[in-house]
Design a protein around this nucleic acid. Structure first.
Length: 1048
RNA sequence: GGGUCAGUAGCUCAGAUGGUUAGAGCGCGUGCCUUAUAAGCACGAGGUGGGAGGUUCAAUUCCUCCCUGACCCA
């Protein structure tokens, strides 16, 4: 006996049983340990931060990861999977700031960095439990117990080792660069952080008059445009585009301006153009400074030239404040301009700028504008809407600020990164070539340091030499630190080492030459360097596990969301390329964002966030996983829609379950047990069974190919279509009677063994994508207590794939399809048997093919005979259709003429082509390869054509056919009655009926058949049915019956 | 402003190395089939393949420009 599934299957409940089984059975560990360690497949887990709740977008990337890892496991690979946690960085600090009610760096220092970092460490795993629950519940197999954690000393030590490699090769430097800077964090933000915070804002847009001091332009002003009035306090120069035309104009009120010719539209008054010149002619012309709070020795306040000046907006003259803009800074270097900093790192105006001292730069804006207005320096003021970066956590506007930080000179090995990127198999490919490739092309040095607290400390110490220069040295391991430090024991008594701030800041080391005591530089590093170091840092390489690391580098596979392109994908690549001269990963899948049903971004403020655990509880992990990869290619952004989940459950899941139940019901009914019978050679099975075996192998072939190419969506769609269309709606439906009542023992083995084997194969293919349900079905089918996830795919059996058989079945399905269309159009129900189908064929081969599937066709459409007309017949009209692929290249421009000739060929002419291979017409020779011959019509028949197949049906009814139709109708009524009244399949009945004479006659003529079909002992015709009767009509005639259950 | 991708039925998506009737599912209307199936099948309505040019005998497919959207970058 096979054990079935409950009538109403509760998927989430079933999954919980499976989770229990996996736990008891230790299946995940077995799935790794049972494999040959020499045949391994390496996967890297990108570490999430567990200080926030996991969301649905985490479920999709984890689904993708799990599918590939389970698949590779079932392909026989050892796939070790270790979880990881990203624990450092600003995201953690910001969460802690929120809980502590802290709003600035100053307050952190007041609070105490030691306490602050302790709070960070405690907050990291705030939602660890939720993460672990989700991970387990969704069936994501990963080793959580041995997860790598980026704040551990061992991990930091490996990162230090890496940093030292960079430092020693001279690609790490301290530089002064303009970086987006958050005044609240008091730290530069990395580019990906900035990207999180662009917002549309309205800023003041002012046109300022700069008075020219050059004698030639006395009384003339440069008209300059800016949206950041506060930077005017630090203005040291103006810039024009050297190649553009500029004009000197005079307004009616006598004001004289210089501005770009292409930007004259900003002048609304009437004006006269006095003079034109190129930008380069303006170079070095000096002007009166607007503000004089800050002074410098260096020469300043003159016109510079740069190609970055565009004619898109403003006046074509740009004001330059080298401290607050990248172009500004670069032009400052070029012209040796002073750097005036009127606004400090806290975003407030410095004391020297007395008028605005202590004000936030945004607060100062309107006052500065006012001041300019009063002094007559303001030409006009407008508002300007544009995208401006905000701190993604503090929601405060960023400033571009010249800061010193440590950089890795990634630009130095950019070409290598580009070259190695070409070895990576990106899915989808265009992200690798396009988005990521472009990013690499435009590579900028990696701003590595952060002026923060909770992170991997930059292991650099410095001293100031006699010349006042800072000299840096780097430490690459704890051991090295111990040896170089002069107070290690003091800072870390009893060898209790914590490499974090503030402890590490206390460690002093002696310089290499022994002459100086060195102090640590205060910065920590970008946490992306942490996660990008995971390939080696997770193993504490090179201090331990050297071989293990080498074996597992690079990864065969990683998968994360699209947002990681510039994040983890980049940091892995940048670090891996430099340290190991190899890409860090060979294959990757990028998944898209998950949007809500309306295609809006999910966000807390919109309240449209989907809680993955709720979905898992309601629908189950299998269904959610399937939906996420099936509904659209994983790299597309996906609108999440619960209705689609339900649809997939009704279709795929119910079909899988019911196909399995079907097998169980009839196996138990007929006493079939796969293990007890000798296996029938597939070649000896019935044609339709051979067809199914051929199909499952073809499907398997496509499935393996798709997954080997990392196309999960395609693989899932192949399985979906096969299960529903071919397995369930064709094979099982067509063979129901056989399963219930096999012809003989061979027939029984043939169908049962086939269905069993196909179910097993199907479950195995489903298992990586939906790991739960196939586990249950597999165990019930095999009666083994061993997981399906420990099984391995056997190679595709090419000998079982029979293209011809599959083709025959396709033809049969096509004929059935056409006949159904004919029936519907002529209002002939399928229950009404018809006399014959007529199909004209063009050759013997087609005839033979059709004859093979004749029985299937006839049974499916309820028609008595299938007749085939071969060759020519006077009732058939033939036509020829041009084959454009052939005649196109052959005739070129003449193609339309030839098309017309071919279309006009009559039946006789077509016949001539068929028999003689060609015909001359209109001076052109048409050969049989130029045309496709079709039969267009059969005179006197009802004809439908599809894909060049013409089918005719004889729709005339005889008395005999009508009676058979009536018998079928009668059977249908009884069966419906049985079904609606929940009669068991095996319950026998008696039928009492009252009806018209002709229906009675029809029933009597088919009485044995009826009795057999509806499981009936006796049919009694009577005039007296008074109770419990049921009234219906058959072909418009009244029929009353009563069904009586027999005691068995 | 720059880059990448996408735009095919009301919605979600296929497909075609350029070949003359562009498909499926969901939804809608109609009919049919069925004691494994909350399914299935057929018919119908619904498409100027985002727009405009170009190349070609032939463009939804290739090229150019533009529009819209998403993401990334500034």
């Amino acid at each position: 006996m096979y054990e079935s599934l409950p009538d109403k299957v509760n998927l989430p409940e079933l999954e919980k049983e499976v989770l229990e089984f996996w736990k008891r059975d230790n299946t995940f560990v077995k799935s790794i340990e049972s494999k040959n360690p020499e045949k391994y497949y390496t996967f890297y887990e990108g570490p999430p931060t567990a200080n926030g709740m996991p969301g649905i977008h985490h479920v999709i990337s984890r689904t993708v990861k799990d599918i590939i890892c389970r698949y590779k496991t079932m392909r026989g690979y050892m796939v070790e999977r270790v979880a990881g946690w990203d624990t450092h960085g600003l995201p953690v600090e910001v969460e802690v700031e929120k809980t502590l009610g802290i709003h600035s760096k100053k307050e952190i220092i007041e609070f105490g960095p030691e306490k602050f970092n302790k709070a960070c460490k405690e907050s990291i795993f705030k939602y660890l439990n939720e993460w672990e629950v989700l991970t387990e519940r969704m069936g994501y197999w990963i080793d959580l117990d041995n997860a790598y954690i980026t704040f551990k000393n061992e991990y930091i030590e490996s990162v230090w080792w890496a940093l030292k490699q960079f430092f020693d090769s001279g690609v790490m430097y301290k530089g002064f660069k303009i970086q987006p800077f958050c005044p609240v964090c008091e730290s530069p933000l990395s580019s990906h952080e900035v990207a999180l915070g662009y917002k549309e804002v309205k800023d003041p847009s002012i046109y300022i008059k700069f008075a020219i001091t050059h004698p030639e332009f006395k009384g003339v002003d440069f008209l300059v445009w800016t949206t950041t009035p506060w930077t005017l306090l630090s203005n040291v120069a103006l810039a024009v585009n050297p190649e553009s035309l500029y004009t000197l104009i005079e307004l009616e009120n006598g004001n004289k301006f210089i501005l770009a010719k292409d930007r004259l539209i900003v002048i609304k008054e009437n004006y006269n153009i006095i003079k034109e010149f190129y930008g380069k002619e303006l170079e070095k012309i000096s002007y009166e400074p607007l503000f004089k709070f800050l002074k410098s020795e260096k020469r300043s306040h003159f016109v510079t030239t740069g190609n970055f000046v565009t004619m898109e907006d403003g006046t074509g003259i740009v004001h330059i404040a080298p401290a607050y803009g990248e172009d500004d800074y670069n032009i400052g270097l070029e012209y040796d301009l002073p750097i005036l900093m009127a606004v400090g790192k806290d975003g407030n105006v410095i004391q020297e700028v007395t008028d605005y001292a202590g004000m936030n730069f945004k607060t100062a804006d309107p006052l500065i504008i006012d001041n300019l207005k009063q002094r007559g320096r303001l030409y006009k003021k407008e508002t300007y809407e544009h995208q401006y970066p905000f701190c993604w956590r503090h929601k405060t506007p960023l400033i571009y600020y010249a800061t010193d930080s440590w950089f890795i000179k990634t630009t130095e090995y950019k070409d290598k990164m580009i070259k190695l990127n070409k070895e990576i198999n990106w899915n989808p490919p265009d992200i690798g070539e396009g988005r990521f490739g472009n990013w690499l092309e435009e590579n900028k040095d990696w701003a590595l340091s952060r002026n923060r607290f909770w992170g991997t400390p930059l292991p650099i110490w410095y001293y100031v030499n006699e010349n006042g220069e800072e000299i840096y040295e780097i430490i690459g391991s704890i051991e090295e630190l111990k040896q170089r430090a002069i107070n290690f024991e003091e800072v870390y008594p009893d060898n209790k080492v914590d490499l974090h701030k503030p402890y590490i800041d206390d460690v002093k080391i002696r310089s290499k030459d022994g002459k100086y005591i060195m102090t640590r530089t205060p910065e920590v590093i970008d946490c992306w360097f942490d996660s990008g170091s995971m390939p080696f840092a997770q193993f504490h390489y090179p201090f331990e596990n050297k071989e293990k690391f080498e074996k597992h580098y690079p990864a065969d596979f990683i998968a994360e969301g699209l947002d990681q392109t510039r994040g983890w994908f980049y940091s892995l690549h940048a670090i891996g390329t430099f340290l190991f001269n190899k890409p860090a990963y060979k294959n990757l899948i990028v998944n898209g964002l998950i949007l809500d049903k309306e295609r809006k971004k999910m966000s807390k403020s919109l309240g449209n966030v989907v809680n993955p655990l709720e979905i898992l509880e309601e629908y189950g992990a299998d269904l959610l996983r399937w939906y996420l990869v099936y509904s659209s290619p994983v790299w597309k952004s996906k609108p999440f829609n619960e209705e689609d989940l339900i649809d997939i459950r009704n279709k795929l899941f119910d079909t899988v379950i019911n196909t399995f139940k079907f097998f169980v019901i009839y196996s138990n009914l007929t006493g079939f047990d796969y293990r007890k019978e000798t296996i029938l050679d597939p070649q000896k099975r019935k044609p339709i069974d051979k067809w199914l075996l051929s199909r499952i192998n073809s499907v398997k072939k496509e499935y393996l190919e798709s997954l080997d190419l990392y196309d999960i969506t395609k693989a899932s769609r192949i399985l979906f279509d096969f299960t529903i269309d071919e397995l369930s709606n064709w094979y099982v439906r067509r063979n129901r009677k056989r399963f219930r009542n096999p012809e003989d023992e061979t027939d029984k083995l043939s169908c049962y063994q086939t269905l069993y084997e196909v179910l097993i194969e199907l479950m195995m293919m489903l298992a990586p994508i939906m790991p739960f349900l196939p586990e249950i079905i597999y165990s019930k089918l095999t009666k083994k207590n061993s997981s399906i996830h420990l099984e391995e795919f056997t190679p595709v059996d090419e000998s079982i794939i029979d293209e011809k058989v599959e083709e025959e079945m396709r033809l049969a399905q096509l004929v059935v399809y056409i006949v159904r269309a004919i029936r519907v159009k002529n209002n002939l129900k399928v229950r009404q048997p018809l006399k014959q189908i007529l199909i004209p064929v063009l050759n013997k081969k087609d005839k033979e093919t059709l004859l093979k599937v004749k029985d299937i066709i006839l049974e499916e459409v309820n028609i008595k005979e299938l007749n085939i007309i071969e060759g020519n017949s006077d009732i058939i009209t033939k036509k020829a259709k041009p084959v454009f692929k052939v005649i196109g290249p052959k005739y070129g421009k003449q193609v339309k003429e030839v098309q017309k000739i071919i279309n006009d060929l009559n039946t006789d002419e077509v016949y001539k082509i068929e028999t003689e291979g060609k015909i001359e017409k209109g001076g052109i020779t048409i050969t049989n390869e130029d045309v496709e011959i079709i039969t267009e019509n059969i005179e006197g028949w009802i004809v439908e054509r599809e894909q060049n197949l013409t089918v005719a049906v004889d729709t005339r009814l005889t008395q005999e056919l009508i009676e058979e139709g009536i018998a079928r109708e009668f059977i249908n009524r009884i069966q419906n009655y049985r079904k609606t009244n929940d009669f068991n399949v095996n319950e026998k009945i008696n039928i009492y009926t009252k009806t018209t004479e002709d229906i009675k006659k029809a029933i009597l003529n088919h009485i044995e058949k009826i009795k057999n079909e509806v499981y009936c002992e006796n049919i009694v015709f009577t005039e007296n049915i008074d109770t419990d009767y049921y009234e219906t009509d058959i072909n418009g005639k009244q029929c009353t019956f009563k069904v009586e259950k027999l005691e068995s």
